[in-house]
Write a protein that binds this DNA or RNA. Structure first.
Lengths: 329, 329
DNA sequence: TTGAAAGCGCTACCAG
DNA sequence: CTGGTAGCGCTTTCAA
């Protein structure tokens, strides 16, 4: 592998000139020409390790996610990546599959890889563990979608509880009194918040809480699918169900349709995420739509600000979800 | 940030001893003790840039994908990552969103980041571009799921054409004669192969080809959804449809159910990917199931072999998909 | 088992 | 605009 010295020798200039040329500085045209052909001749590429060592930066941002597959993450990532890119950064994704050991290990790895910043969707780490792994948070970090309680770093969330509250309220306005909820693990931040919104709405609406109507499983298809079956076995069935995640929603609908139930005539469903698919259904399925794009953009902005010297206290922003379609059907 | 020298000074030994300690070498217990406490006191971490510069390795593998969201990728990634991890490597994912510019740019970036190897699912790059970006393929690369024609590197594919052939054959055995296909962009390797299998099956079965029954769009929900509507408008409708990707399948089914059509009574559907969801339906939806786990594992093994010195000619392996459920329903 | 010293390849300073 | 030079922080001989 050719080094900068080889190129310098062949082009008849000094390494510093090559370096300047490579980094967009001004070089006499005649030298630039010689450098160009030397680079081609030797098939020279800068050694990223050496450059990073010198500059102590990599221009890369680590993104630590629980699950690569959820459409929510995909949409957030697209917006995030776009903004980062505009500022000369690239994102590198690491995925821990909702596995505590991997969450630790991948976080450690991302840090050790020399990323300049971190976008982090936590699941199961304590503040102490995070500090230990990151050397006291010296690396700029933005949490998204979830939050480790007490971790002093910028955080971008959506208004899970309020959105859930609004969803339940709308169902109630349509006359539903027995409203079930199928949600993710109670330990996961966002699932917890959505459940809180549900409970608060019941209380505000004067609807009696019935724990048979609360199903907490995983954030997956099977939970939605089995949730349907469990609810149908109740003697006093719900007339409406709030499914608090995309996979759960799809699982539930699949099961309901297989049983020949019409939505919303036989059972009303209020979903979460994946606006494009749900509005495409007939009739459109009402959903809580998180501002995925805005979350990604804001997280990227916060990170860029930290990366460029901003040193204010940690900011936590909750972005508003919307209910779609806007009007009750 | 503390350096190895600081630690050495505080512990009263030389930097080389620290280095040896850090890398698991033998150090007198008394020194080890001093080193440990110095590390804690200074909160020392090795500088990854310096280490990588010296060793010229990063122990990381770049994974370049078109789309982060597809369940197929998620399953392949899980298996891949597991094997890599067992060999001391970590995977770093970069996603180009089926965008040609980003495919180039992200590939360049991954290389420049110093990954030791590359797992690549290509879409739109020529051999020349790839060579140009990677400096003549000096970096060990394994292609998965798709292949740039003529690129001399290890490749792990599934038997798209044969699987499609088998799917169509089974539909025909059930008595279907008008069988439609909804597939991804004709330029995408895997979509092309699946279409080829479809055509070959028709020909083998003596079924006349009708271009009204071939819909080529994107690999997404909307294509499946609209595909249904288009097919329903034909005067001579198909009795069966082969949907060659997960999102297309879901989109198609959603549309069909909204129109009140029963599957398979009113229209038979043969899907692709996502075994767990399709078999959960009642009746189970027949699907082509790609060996996601095996693909991930084999790709990882191939890469590890290259990384550890194997220097044979490029290998291309096609792994067999299965049809699920095994028996016709 | 330990330490001295020589770089890995690059950038950035400063003098010319 | 150009080049000499001094490291960035680490690993790795090699000799002690």
């Amino acid at each position: 592998m050719a080094t900068i010295k080889d190129v310098a020798k062949l082009a008849g200039v000094s390494p510093s000139t090559i370096s300047k040329y490579m980094n967009g500085g001004n070089v006499r045209e005649e030298n630039a020409e010689a450098i160009r052909s030397a680079i081609v001749a030797l098939d020279y590429r800068v050694n990223p390790f050496a450059r990073n060592l010198k500059t102590q930066r990599s221009r890369s941002i680590g993104v630590l996610l629980p699950d690569i597959t959820a459409p929510f993450f995909g949409n957030v990532m697209t917006a995030l990546d776009k903004v980062l890119r505009e500022h000369g950064y690239h994102s590198l994704i690491s995925c821990y599959g909702s596995n505590h050991g991997l969450e630790r290990d991948n976080l450690r790895f991302l840090i050790s890889t020399g990323v300049d910043g971190l976008i982090y969707m936590p699941e199961n780490l304590s503040v102490e563990e995070f500090f230990e792994l990151t050397a006291n948070c010296s690396i700029p970090t933005v949490q998204i979608d979830r939050s480790i309680q007490g971790l002093p770093c910028d955080t971008v969330l959506s208004d899970n509880a309020d959105a859930a509250h609004a969803a339940i309220t709308r169902l109630a306005a349509q006359g539903h009194k027995r409203i079930a909820i199928i949600t993710g693990p109670k330990v996961v931040f966002s699932a917890k918040e959505r459940l809180v919104g549900y409970l608060r709405a019941l209380s505000d609406l004067g609807i009696l809480y019935d724990d048979q109507l609360v199903i907490s499983g995983q954030n997956d298809f099977a939970t939605g699918y089995r949730g349907f079956e469990d609810l149908m076995q109740l003697s006093d069935r719900p007339t409406a169900v709030f499914t608090t995640n995309y996979d759960i929603t799809i699982g539930f609908i699949t099961a309901a349709r297989e049983r020949g139930l019409l939505i919303p005539q036989d059972i009303a469903v209020f979903g979460f995420d994946c606006l494009d698919i749900c509005t495409m259904m007939k009739p459109p399925l009402p959903v809580v739509h998180q501002p995925e794009q805005e979350i990604g953009q804001l997280a990227a902005r916060y990170l860029i600000e930290r990366l460029t010297g901003f040193d204010g206290p940690p900011r936590t922003t909750r972005l508003c979800s919307s209910i779609e379609p806007k009007e009750s059907v």
